[in-house]
Design a protein around this nucleic acid. Sequence first.
DNA 1: CCACATGTTCATTT
DNA 2: AAAATGAACATGTG
Length: 259
Amino acid sequence: MPELPSLEIFKQYFDSTSLNQEIKEININNPEILFDISENNIKELVNRYFVSSSRYGKYLFVSTSDNKFLIFHFGMTGFFKYHPKNEGISSHSRISFLFKNGNVLDFDDSRKFGKISISENISDFINKKNLGPDALEISLSSFKKLFQRRSGHIKPLLMNQQFLAGIGNLYADEILFQSGIHPLKKAYQIENDEQNKLYDNMVWVLKKAIEFNDSPRNFPENFLLAHRYPKGECPNGDKLDIIKVGGRTTYYCPHNQKL
DNA sequence: CCACATGTTCATTT
DNA sequence: AAAATGAACATGTG
């Protein structure tokens, strides 16, 4: 589930498997996932290695030994798989990095909404995409300033990457549920105390999700995501309501999240 | 066959 | 300028 918590898990996986190993070969199985770069741009990484990584919103930036950044976006279905070359080939590998140690890092993405790019500079890329502040980096006071002059519904706003980077459909539902805020509430109607609560819950939910490895099945009972399926019930026993907000399926508890 | 899915981008309206 | 809407992208699952 490639929202911010998944990205943290992917980063941990990447860091523990793929850093500081010489890249021997790169196979680009689906060139259409390359964004603004050519196959040759990627192939220049042969004989280089990955130095470190950092996450911003739903993007992973990997610094390379030729002083550039390889950028991963995981779309809806992307993930990494690191494995010995001769086993466990990932079924929808769009690009494979073969390391000198005989292991392979596959970027697997069945739906091909993922993207890989290269940039000389992280902030150039963030500016070009016009991304808002990262949801786990922003301060409370900056978060509150974001609400000035905003007239739309709160849920699409939380999911708008140019407003705030990292939150997607599932975690927007979870954060609003924990905060007792209706997804269709107008952003400007969220008062000071509720802004504080929303901020605290955003940080808490995202951090807990990372702790629980971003697997909703492992989430505690008091998480909406543990019940977010048709006919699912709110932990307090009420039936969850399912509506469309901004074109996306939205679960909420009508009893606890009122307009 | 149909509906739906964790995301982003684009065109068109309001 | 902001916001809402719907479609498109490609593919798998139920």
